[in-house]
Amino acid sequence: MYNFDFVKPSTVEEAVAALADDEAQPLSGGQTLIPTMKQRLNAPETLVSLLGIEALKGVTVGGDRVTIGAATTHATVAREVAEAYPALAALAGNIGDPAVRNRGTIGGSLANNDPAACYPAAALASGATVVTNRREIPADEYFEGMFATALEEGEIITRVTFPIPEAAAYVKFEQPASRFALAGVFVAKFAGGVRVAITGASEEGVFRWSEAEEALSGNFSAGAVSALSLDADGMMADLHGSAEYRAHLAKVLTGRAVTAAG
């Protein structure tokens, strides 16, 4: 890979200052970034590690919400959120593999917004709020398509706040090689209605399946979605599955997630 300057600030302010340089990029675990750098597909002049900023780490549970610092690893979320929000903890505990979970962070995952990543589904289905050094962004406004987010230059995620639903589950069907989601569905049932977010399937990245949300809000059972279907148009197609297959899979997984949520 190309060489770069490595800096590891200890405060958000220092990190933001370091990232003011156009050629600087944040490093928040690097489990996706480093492999792309090895291929020389990404060439920052400065890498700003966010893992030295204690303020970005940790989980707080308060009342009806869970707040997770951006630099909190998947392993930590899996462990520390297990009681407050088991579906979110289970999702974190199934990302990648144990080594990835010890380095990868929720902030890194959401900032990257890989179309087959797990966290975006949780954030979108939960109606989470992405908090940055500048503002609070509702999940519905945060995800802007494959690898695209509402984040601006120099803006970094500091924490993510998840409202805790009454019932929720995430069901992932793994792409057999990468173990990313070929399709993954997060279903969250709140007093005010049900939210369904699907990752891995669409060319537009994570999205909400509004027909399913409507049906499930009236009748929270797998049967409620059995008559629905997702349009294959706009679904990803590759050697692991056609657009039709992904659309079908997303529907099947939605039913299973509802059943798992109970």
Binding site: P176, S178, L239, H240
Partner: peptide
């Protein structure tokens, strides 16, 4: 069950890493 080495019509290897070649 898993492994497949796939070229596209232009001769580009689609399963060129463990991200797409299922070990």
């Amino acid at each position: 069950l898993l492994e497949n080495c796939v070229y596209d019509a232009d001769g580009q290897l689609l399963s060129a890493s463990y991200m797409d070649y299922a070990m």
